[in-house]
């Protein structure tokens, strides 16, 4: 299996889907000659030309809205919003248009678009360029939400997202673009709604998303040295959510720690905790713990930003608190 970065895996998935289906096109700010603000779409304009790799003006409303229109009219747009924070300026198109069209029209429309956008802190990009706002999206019925944590997952899930007939929001973490991993060859897809056990264990279940999967794995490693076997689950897609894998794990371990980078208040961790509390209360041997960012905007100064982002120590602490 070839090694490639998370960024290259996404680039490859986009290329393969564009070669496979000429209805697929990408558009966004600086995705063409510039290759995207994080270099993810590098070289794509050379292969597909400006007809299918569209540089847009700084008009998020028009990017999102026209993607919805084009999707409803039979294309498969893959718009990019440069930073997830900027979703705030085009939420109507996502929330009131893309998400609801099918339902409002009595099942008579489909909106097969995949919105790619970038979340996460760690670059010192401060309050308006670092947020993890996935909970907002998950709250809106009609949207699917994908958060891959490895190069292989990114590739397989993006291909499925593009082939899906629903609007899918695909969330990439800016601090993972340079991470490398093995990616299966060929036309490799991962179904939406399928979690993966990233590490098996029997003492505690850690559910983590996006970059936090790596911190959870590192924590699990440290815990293992102390004889604590943590099972790390990456749901990979938040909507639809793979309850079965999670419940089976909780049944085995009886303990649950949830980790995400988004702020705790109103975060998706609350939803996961509620699912388990409602449906597997009997299996729990201890209260559920959430490790998440404090409910503050994201600070600029490096030391404050590090304090904001959940880390290995906090995960270990949470695990130990319920053992």
């Amino acid at each position: 299996m070839p090694e490639m970065t998370y960024s290259q895996a996404i680039n490859e998935a986009l290329r393969e889907e564009m070669r496979r289906d000429d209805k697929v096109f990408i558009m966004g700010e600086d995705v063409g000659i510039f290759g995207g603000c994080f270099g993810v779409t590098t070289g794509m304009i050379d292969e597909f030309g400006p007809e299918r790799v569209l540089d847009t003006p700084i008009s998020e409303t028009a990017i999102m809205g026209s993607a919805v229109g084009a999707a409803a009219a039979g294309l498969r747009p893959v718009p990019e919003i440069m930073f997830m924070d900027f979703l705030a300026v085009c939420l109507d198109e996502l929330v009131n248009q893309a998400a609801k069209m099918r339902y409002m029209f009595g099942g008579k429309a489909k909106v097969p678009l995949t919105l790619r956008t970038v979340l996460g802190a760690g670059l010192g990009a401060a309050a308006q360029h670092s947020q993890s706002l996935e909970a907002w999206i998950c709250h809106v019925p009609g949207l699917k939400v994908v958060m891959p944590s490895t190069a292989a997952d990114a590739k397989g899930l993006l291909k499925s997202a593009i082939r899906d007939d629903n609007p899918v929001v695909f969330l990439e973490h800016k601090m993972m673009y340079a991470m490398s991993g093995e990616v299966p060859d060929g036309d490799y897809t991962i179904p939406l709604g399928k979690a993966e056990i990233k590490r098996a264990g029997k003492d505690v279940t850690i559910v983590a998303t996006s970059l936090m999967v790596h911190k959870a794995l590192a924590a699990a490693e440290t815990l293992a040295a102390e004889g604590i076997e943590a099972e790390v689950i990456d749901p990979r897609t938040l909507v639809p959510f793979d309850k079965e894998t999670l419940f089976q794990s909780v049944e085995k371990t009886g303990r649950l720690v949830i980790v995400h980078e988004a702020v705790k208040t109103g975060g998706f961790g609350g939803e996961i905790a509620a699912m388990v509390a409602e449906e597997c209360f009997d299996m729990l041997d201890a209260p559920i713990k959430r490790v998440a960012a404090p409910s503050t905007p994201i600070p600029f100064a490096s030391n404050l930003e590090s304090a904001f982002i959940p880390n290995e120590e906090k995960i270990i602490e949470a695990v130990k608190a319920i053992l």
Binding site: A126, F300, N303
Partner: peptide, 15 residues
């Protein structure tokens, strides 16, 4: 990103 900055280091260049 220092505490004596306009925003106590919480905003940075862009804020």
């Amino acid at each position: 990103g220092k505490v004596d900055g306009y925003c106590k280091g919480k905003g940075g260049s862009m804020h």
